[in-house]
Nucleic acid binder design. Structure first.
Lengths: 289, 289
DNA sequence: ATAAGGCATTCAGCATTTATGAATACTAAA
DNA sequence: TTTAGTATTCATAAATGCTGAATGCCTTAT
């Protein structure tokens, strides 16, 4: 049974005349006749009573006509839905982030997105800057929020510049630190090779600093510093909060700035979903251009 | 768009694998691939994202899958309904009657029928015995209740024997009637050539009786007799009712018996609807065989 | 009575669509 | 590097559906 059987069924039932039905269906009586016959065989019941005057529905035909009509309507619904959602943006976007969501205004972004682009759903994924680049290239992420410089083959939208400072345990003797170089023999809690923070550290202190522990997670690093394990980098405003509480100390000797950017694969810059997402990011972060 | 497109769509969505889908559909990957591609072109949107791992639904694919499934379900409903009502009796039956319905227990018949065979609807039609035979042969009636002998090519189920008597106006001088022959020169209200009552009249009185008026309708004939137009035949029990009221007189000289039968065309005796109807008639009239 | 017109159906041949099987290109895993 | 699994392309074969003329049936008009 195919749709054209049902179409013929319905039209013949309406016209009660095979010839006219054929005209309306832009076909010929033998073709429509065959449709009806096939349908009758398949359903195992007569649908019409043939006479020299035309075709009249049997009782069972009347019964089944309702379902046939319903089935065709359902199909039309599907086609209409496809047409309606033709230019409607729909899709998933796997967004990798390198910080707690609040700081990145992600909640606001999701809120705006669900209002302006209800067809786009976002899958969030925590990762480190370097890994984000890799996974975007591998197709596991669609885009991400990353620190620092952006490799080739990536499109980057600069969101803001962040100030990074050095945090130390509260009982750290900051008097002993005169220049940045004095920090190179201290114990460090580093990120990992995928994090530009570590690059910055190497740039400033050389590669002879000691790494006591590694963690991508800001919160973990903070905890380790709190517990007197060593020094680490942290975003300035966050660090100031914890210093106020007396939990850590801030060492300004290595302060540096770093860009926070939204990145996607260069080749996907014309993807309408990505375009829409960038638009929303611009709004949330108030990026004029 | 045809059903096989939707079937392929649904199965590929389930298996997320063209090869397995093809197996399940007893087909080959190129065929199923073409189905999907055709459907995508027709709907104007991609349904799947192809990868070396298989096929995964796009967002719009997910959206449209619901409708596709619904459409297929609706079609299955129709096929199931056809199968369920396979052995269910359905149809119209045009029943011609030659008397008021009450006497023929038609109300009871309809009641039983609607309980035992809800798919059968009955169209009632008043007519005269002879016309009933003609119209059954012409296909205008499916069956009827008739008086007297039944021609060839008809199946007859005898329902009961009725006593027919002669009715006369109330001021009729019955003393003057010694034998049946005395009635032959009276004025008669006859039925018509299609009614076996007239045959009976001819048989008994010869063809030289005078016909003043004709009517198939019992009520009309009764009215005419009441108004002193002439004599006529009537079923005995009815006649007795009217005699009690003093409206008419009964003349017993020509009394005769006649069968009331249910008839259908002989060739249609195996029609299941007719079989069912006969069964119900047997019940209503308590006909043991 | 006869002819004409409308109806559904049958059938042989044709046109189109659909399915197939081998080959290809790609990717992931071994 | 090879192997296995994926979807796709292509030429060919098979199947399916469509057509137009012819047929039979019936009703209506002549």
């Amino acid at each position: 049974m195919e749709f054209y059987h049902l179409r013929s069924f319905v039209v013949v039932a309406e016209t009660r005349n095979l010839t006219q039905a054929a005209k309306r269906l832009c076909s010929t009586p033998p073709a429509i006749s065959a449709h009806i016959k096939t349908l009758e065989q398949e359903l195992g019941t007569d649908l019409f009573i043939r006479s020299t005057k035309g075709m009249t529905l049997t009782k069972k035909g009347e019964l089944l006509l309702v379902n046939a009509q319903k089935t065709l309507d359902s199909a039309v619904d599907m086609v209409n839905l496809a047409a309606d959602s033709q230019d409607k943006l729909m899709g998933n976007f796997t967004l990798a982030v390198n910080q707690p969501l609040q700081q990145l205004r992600i909640p606001q972004l999701l809120k705006n997105l669900s209002e302006n682009c209800p067809g786009i759903s976002v899958q969030l994924c925590q990762s480190a800057t370097g890994r984000i680049f890799e996974n975007i290239l591998l197709g596991y992420f669609d885009g991400g929020l990353v620190y620092g410089d952006v490799p080739e083959d990536f499109f980057a939208l600069k969101i803001k510049q962040e100030k990074i400072t050095t945090i130390a345990p509260k009982n750290f003797d900051e008097k002993s630190i005169i220049s940045a170089q004095n920090l190179s023999d201290k114990l460090w809690i580093t990120m990992d090779k995928y994090c530009p923070f570590d690059n910055e550290l190497t740039k400033r202190l050389g590669s002879n600093y000691q790494s006591k522990a590694q963690s991508n997670d800001e919160q973990s690093r903070l905890d380790l510093v709190r517990n007197d394990i060593g020094l680490s980098f942290l975003e300035l405003s966050l660090a100031e909060q914890y210093q106020k509480k007396g939990e850590i100390k801030i060492l300004p000797h290595l302060d540096f700035n770093i860009d926070l950017s939204f990145v996607v694969a260069d080749k996907r810059i014309n993807d309408p979903i990505i375009k829409a997402l960038i638009q929303e990011i611009r709004i949330v972060w108030n990026i004029t251009l």
